[in-house]
């Protein structure tokens, strides 16, 4: 029976997947940023134009997409800090693996604090 390759320190592990996630979330945030600068620029046109476009941000579909955006930002921001610690902190490389799980933990905690409140606003639940 051929056995699984032993792998490396990087490939298929936390180092690689955090890198993949960082890229994917980065691209997603970049394209949102392009749209967001344009929609905000509508305040210069007229109150009606801005309110019409920002109204779509309050619809259920886009409201749910905003949860994805916030999740992407939380991961990208905290993993970015992890990258900085790996680069500049003496023990950064040693603790990169545990720091990844700390990033996931803090991101999940912040997301769980945000999501119910946001869903409450989007779906007019009146919970909070």
């Amino acid at each position: 029976m051929p056995s699984m390759p032993a792998g490396t320190l990087y490939r298929g592990k936390v180092g690689m997947w955090s890198w993949v996630l960082h890229r994917i979330t980065g691209v997603a945030i970049f394209f949102f940023l392009l749209v967001h600068v344009l929609d905000t620029a509508l305040v210069r046109l007229s109150p009606e134009a801005y309110n019409a476009v920002i109204g779509t941000y309050k619809t259920p579909l886009i409201g749910l997409a905003e949860l994805g955006l916030v999740a992407a930002i939380l991961f990208h921001a905290l993993n970015g800090l992890r990258v900085i610690l790996i680069d500049f902190w003496r023990k950064g490389v040693k603790y990169q693996n545990v720091m990844f799980w700390i990033v996931i933990g803090i991101a999940a905690a912040l997301f769980l604090g945000f999501a119910p409140r946001h869903l409450d606003h989007v779906f007019n639940l009146g919970l909070f």
């Binding site: 109150p47 801005y50 920002i54 309050k58 946001h118 606003h121 989007v122």
Partner: peptide, 14 residues
Amino acid sequence: NLFLGEGIKAIDFA
């Protein structure tokens, strides 16, 4: 903008 007050619902020109 998204957490305090009414969150996304409160965002408009005003």
